Computed example of a mutant assay.
Amino acid sequence: MSFSLPYPWLEATLRGLLATHRGHAVLLAGPQGVGQFELALALAQAWLCESDAPAPPCGVCTSCGLVRSHTHPDLVVLLPEALQEELGWGSAEAESEAKASKAKPSREIKVDALRRVVEFAQQTSSRGVAKVVLVHPAERMNAISANTLLKTLEEPPGQARFVLSTEAIDALLPTIRSRCQHLRLSPPEAGTALQWLQAQGMPNADVLLAAAGGQPVTALQLKQQGLDAAAWLQLPERLVKGEVAALAGWPVPRAVDALQKVCHDAMCVAGGAPPRYFSSEGFRSMRASIDDLAAWSRELRRVARHEEHPWNAGLLLESLVSQARRALHSATYE
């Protein structure tokens, strides 16, 4: 089985990175919805590949096979518990422990895991090529975890390499950032993204691609989560009318994200700029107050910081729709 990235727009990025990277650590910074984790994993696989070819991993050597099966002895993929199952890197033992525990899976990368990584990096490579640590998303390390990793980044053992990925580079310690070669990722061109989404069998790909801010992986996830393109386009007008049903059944994080996008586009229209996430038709004739929208934006940011709180989802969504109606009421069609 030859190697191929799941997202074609990353092929050239990987080749360029392999041709230009220097040092022992790479930091990938950019939106998650363009395949950030997959690129980090491909880079790790390339570093461990046992083929003589200098470019992307061969996909056929023993090492590449071990990476695919998640059993490579020289690779550690460090993820928060809450992401392990979603990304397909949860061990059977960890899943069993999670089911037995009443606690919610952690969204942070814990310090104990970083300590094990430091010990792993100091060991001799089992296959004699490299020792690779992948940390994703790196901003999920708290200050104690990050400082635990810092010493190893400053003085890495000879065979150790690190690839960190983040969508919040400013949340990382400056000392972590300074020890890494940076690569900033951007969404692919709209035509490339639409072609890929259509190949996945997605109708109305342009609507959901806009809803995802141009990030095709996120657009596909929205479709898989049941988001309907027509319902998305109708959302601003339904919020103006105070229709709680517009968000019925939505998980709180997704509802807050959608409301922030409505607020963003309403502010754009109020300022004379085109909307980004919705059709301009949804904001036709609206005359929103910038002050009201700014206050709404601040309140949404406050809620977003606590979106994992065990809210009563129904009551919270009613409150959020009520806030939206008040903020957008001055933009009602005449």
Rank of each mutant, 00 (worst) to 15 (best):
F3R: 10
L5A: 01
P6D: 11
L10E: 04
A12V: 10
T13Q: 01
R15I: 09
T20P: 00
T20W: 02
P31L: 13
G33A: 05
G35R: 10
F37T: 00
A46S: 15
W47M: 03
P56F: 12
C58F: 06
G59N: 04
T62H: 13
S63F: 08
L66R: 13
S69G: 06
H70I: 06
V76P: 02
V76N: 01
L78I: 07
L79S: 01
L79E: 10
E81A: 09
L87I: 07
W89T: 06
E93D: 14
A94I: 10
A94Q: 14
A94V: 07
E97T: 05
A98W: 05
K104P: 04
P105L: 14
P105A: 11
R107A: 15
E108S: 15
R115Q: 14
V117D: 03
V117G: 05
R127C: 12
A130E: 10
K131Q: 10
K131R: 15
V132L: 08
V133L: 09
R140Q: 14
A146D: 02
T148M: 13
L150E: 02
K151R: 15
P157Y: 00
R161E: 08
V163L: 08
E167H: 05
A171I: 08
S178E: 09
L183F: 14
R184N: 12
S186E: 14
P187D: 05
A193N: 03
Q195H: 13
W196H: 01
W196R: 05
Q198Y: 04
P203H: 08
N204W: 01
N204F: 02
N204Y: 00
D206I: 14
L209Y: 00
A210R: 15
A212H: 01
T218C: 03
A219K: 11
A219N: 10
A219G: 08
Q221E: 10
L222Y: 12
L222M: 01
Q224L: 08
W232H: 00
E237T: 11
E237A: 15
A248L: 03
P251T: 04
P253Q: 13
D257F: 13
L259K: 04
K261P: 00
H264S: 09
H264P: 05
D265K: 03
D265W: 04
D265I: 12
M267Y: 10
A273F: 12
A273D: 07
P275Q: 09
Y277N: 03
S280W: 04
S285D: 14
D292F: 07
A294T: 15
W296K: 00
R298A: 12
A304D: 07
R305S: 13
P310M: 14
N312T: 09
A313M: 06
G314L: 11
S319N: 04
S322Y: 06
A324V: 14
L328R: 12
